[in-house]
Write a protein that binds this DNA or RNA. Structure first.
Lengths: 219, 219
DNA sequence: AGATGTTGACTGACCAGTCAATCTACTCGG
DNA sequence: CCGAGTAGATTGACTGGTCAGTCAACATCT
């Protein structure tokens, strides 16, 4: 049941096999998929004995759970921080899109695993973490609702729906990269962030005019 | 290898066990997920002997492949038809959104299976059908590119990206329904179609003004 | 009688999870 | 400073159960 068993006072040289296993699992899950890979694949990839995986994790599932929660909580944290600041919606959404795209840029395998095996897995893992996943959607929905209350966004579109569409658009861009359907690279990543925010905000904003200074593209 | 083995000249009373198995598979896949269910679950659900599944299909995989292709090809067909007609982009996209949402409305389980097990499964099935899946994205991308060429849509957003965002927004709405995160029902389905088109087109159109007659909502 | 449909017991492979043994690294009394 | 004691880390052979796919027999139709 325990999700992590940090060696606490460890700080010096130790190779931290737990981390090693987690990182290896990301690569293996990304390459073969959670259901198709064997626990021994993870152990091999980590250069570690089979049994050690079970020393640190209660089950194969727990390895994936850990990976997901580790990352998703970072995102939740960021969303909350952004939400707390007194920024225009557009900037808030922009920050979220940036975070997700940057996460992919930084570790494509991890994001692939999270999206494919958890976020979109309507059975097993998706169900298990639905509450945690939902938090993100709700937070975004809240931002949009607030913008509507302030008159920045049109009120006739349910905030929850808009939040899902926004998040879905981002995730699909990642999917496009994962499947090799969209061109990757720094430049395209920046462009994608801009596109998503521009599109969604453009469609939601009250005053369709006034793209002042934002029309020319990202960075 | 063969995907289907249609009984050809069949037309009369036969219970058409093949169809029975396919329909049962949809229910079982939707309920338990492809990887977690056993072939015997499908046979049981269909009220048919285990071996009969292998009489009609070469493998468990082939059952899913068949379900996916059957439906995806219908969608491809629709997109091509819509594309061929001389309609404004907005109407074309609207038709696509409608089709997908209606498909979910008509058979939620089937759409759930297709999305969760194929469309978004970056390994195995996703890879197998990537070409077919891509066709849909390309077709939509083409529509958007054309609209850009005509000056209806802004040219600075890559059409391919916009297509992915559009499709992703729709799929995420279905995901919201599948996970029980969004309210369902005729009314909400109609609203969702409108939202997606309104949002995406609103963000892509050249003249952000002129929502004439479309602002008040669907139907 | 031949073809096609239908049955379900069986097999062979595979793999998650267990466990007893071995190996560290560090503690502490002498 | 030493060496027995110990707790955690690490190993990999093994087990128990599961399940995709096979097949030989039986049924039904033409």
């Amino acid at each position: 049941m325990s999700t992590a068993r940090p060696p606490a006072g460890r700080a010096k040289a130790a190779p931290d096999k737990r981390r090693l296993i987690l990182d290896a699992a990301v690569r293996v899950f990304a390459r073969q998929g959670f259901h198709t890979c064997r626990v021994s694949d993870i152990a091999d990839e980590a250069g570690v004995a089979y049994g050690l995986v079970y020393h640190y994790f209660g089950s194969k599932d727990e390895v994936l759970d850990t990976l997901f929660l580790e990352r998703w909580n970072v995102m939740l944290e960021l969303i909350r921080e952004v939400d707390a600041e007194p920024l225009p919606v557009r900037d808030k959404l922009r920050a979220i899109a940036s975070f997700i795209v940057d996460s992919y840029h930084h570790d494509p395998d991890l994001m692939k695993v999270i999206i494919v095996e958890v976020t979109r897995a309507a059975n097993s893992f998706g169900d298990t973490h639905i509450g945690t996943i939902r938090e993100a959607y709700d937070l975004i929905g809240g931002m949009i609702a607030k913008a509507q209350a302030e008159g920045v966004f049109k009120p006739e579109i349910e905030a929850r729906f808009a939040a899902m569409a926004f998040y879905g658009a981002i995730e699909q861009l990642l999917t496009g990269w994962i499947f090799g359907l969209l061109p990757q690279g720094e430049e395209h990543f920046e462009r994608a962030k801009w596109l998503v925010v521009e599109t969604v905000c453009g469609g939601l904003e009250t005053r369709p005019a006034g793209h002042a200074g934002a029309v020319s593209g990202p960075v």
